[in-house]
Design a protein around this nucleic acid. Structure first.
Lengths: 189, 189
DNA sequence: CCAGTGTGAGACATTGACGTCTCACATGGG
DNA sequence: CCCATGTGAGACGTCAATGTCTCACACTGG
């Protein structure tokens, strides 16, 4: 009955367009989500029991994409700074979804957050810690804060791109260079 | 009838507690906002015609506090980096409100935004531009992006403080030093 | 004392989104 | 050909938040 493949493709497509829409308008209606996916609200409900289920599925998708980006970035290889640059580049396609989830996570107060985020926080925090230990990064900025700031800058960057204030091709530079080097100009070394 | 003074004080108090609450839970009910202010929902409606009016009043309050912080920071004086540090320090008390409004502004799509934001963007963007012209700041990072990133980092910092991931006393350092200097350690000059 | 004013409490209708259900239709496989 | 499965359209009922209204009460100044 083609359950695993056809359904999965459809579900994937629905998730993608829902992510696209909710990234722009995080309060979009189930109706709008359905229209955006080109299906009816009834069919949307057949895939996802309700809005909560949809958001939780998007959360899982976001975690998967982040993990994939972290894998692809090989955070343990080479200088920590280069690892962060690779991470930002790999994570750009998921930036919109991340921005949506970052805003949404401010609302889930009390509910136990998905373990996936804790795992990701640990993996990303580790690269900043490595930078500290190697003397590459400043010790005044804690790994927890740098991780938080990375999420925040990714969200800000995604919104700036969406509103046309930043070109999409400049996203990796803007985010990574600000996070790593800051605004102040380097002295020639 | 004491309209201008007594009403203003009450209105101010209501706005403050609404800002406190909505900073933590941006979807709080009018009922909850009223409880938080220690008044009834009816009285809340007597001060603010509806939720929209409340949010718009909070927006005006946020703009006022930002303008005050920008004034107090004397952005035109001294090195641009020091000006940004002063700005972050002055703006910290309003950081929670700013974070709420920053998230909310993602929803006002289409509606003409308050001129106040444009004025603030211009004033803050100017200090980054000044840093560019003086050679103090890197030209790869545009003033528009640095302004956006400043808002984003302030919001991230406010949330991190609220969740206890960063100490309130470290807020100015974390935000300003990341924005200006980035994570990479400076060579001794 | 008393009139005026602001307030709290609560009832009420409205609105918008949600979740469930039914039914007709189409498409594809046996 | 015919049946089955998935879909679209739409009609409900539900529920939470909102906005409006009324009424009783407390306080305050004349």
């Amino acid at each position: 009955m083609g359950y695993c493949c056809l359904m999965a493709v459809d579900r994937e497509h629905v998730l993608r367009s829902a992510a696209d829409l909710l990234t722009r308008r995080s309060t979009a209606t189930m109706d709008e989500v359905a229209k955006a996916a080109g299906i009816s609200r009834a069919t949307l409900h057949r895939h996802f029991a309700g809005r909560d289920a949809l958001v939780r599925a998007l959360e899982s998708l976001g975690i998967e994409e982040c993990e994939a980006a972290v894998d692809a970035a090989r955070l343990d290889d080479g200088p920590a700074g280069e690892a962060v640059r690779r991470l930002v580049r790999e994570i750009q396609p998921a930036a919109g979804l991340l921005a949506f989830l970052y805003g949404e996570s401010q609302l889930w107060e009390g509910e136990p957050q998905n373990d996936g985020w804790a795992r990701l926080d640990a993996r990303i925090g580790a690269v900043f810690q490595r930078g500290h230990q190697s003397g590459e990064f400043r010790v005044e900025l804690t790994p927890a804060w740098l991780t938080e700031a990375l999420y925040g800058l990714i969200a800000s960057g995604a919104w700036a791109v969406q509103d046309g204030r930043v070109a999409a091709r400049d996203f990796p530079t803007m985010v990574a260079e600000l996070l790593l080097g800051g605004a102040t100009r380097r002295e020639e070394s």
